[in-house]
């Protein structure tokens, strides 16, 4: 099973359509199977991200704000979308592996006010 997280630096990118980086992690039984892969896109495009999610046969997409159109498309393709996530992508990945990540969650570490973006 694979998880794709749209990222900006060390954080979940605030917008799906403006994400230029993604990490794809393969896991089995709540355990990561190796180091997550990082992909940098040549241009920002929600369609391209949807395409990657399908080609990589991702089971779950973790992202920030996403438009309804793309959310519905991914859901239609049987990809679980956990959207409006605010926080560090490592924390989001860990919670997603444990099946504890919920849409719209604001992870507590984000509130430090010392985030470098």
């Amino acid at each position: 099973m694979k998880i794709m997280i749209t990222t900006r630096g060390d954080f979940v990118s605030p917008r799906f359509d403006l994400s230029s980086e993604v990490i794809i992690a393969t896991y089995y039984d709540q355990q990561l199977m190796g180091e997550p892969r990082s992909l940098i896109l040549a241009e920002v495009s929600a369609e391209m991200l949807c395409d990657i999610a399908i080609k990589e046969q991702v089971a779950c997409v973790v992202c920030g704000g996403i438009e309804e159109e793309h959310y519905q498309f991914l859901s239609w393709k049987k990809i679980k979308v956990i959207d409006a996530v605010i926080g560090a992508c490592s924390d989001a990945l860990q919670l997603a592996l444990e099946n504890k990540l919920k849409p719209g969650v604001i992870l507590p570490e984000i509130r430090t006010g010392k985030v470098v973006t």
């Binding site: 900006r8 954080f11 605030p14 917008r15 403006l18 920030g64 704000g65 605010i86 719209g104 604001i106 984000i110 509130r111 430090t112 006010g113 985030v115 973006t117």
Partner: peptide, 25 residues
């Protein structure tokens, strides 16, 4: 936005507003 002011206090504005022009603030 669908957020309560108290819930998002202290969070980076860009993460909440999710605007397109504020590229990396």
């Amino acid at each position: 936005l669908g957020y309560n002011s108290d819930d998002v206090r202290g969070v980076y504005g860009d993460f909440i507003l999710r605007s397109n022009p504020s590229f990396r603030n």
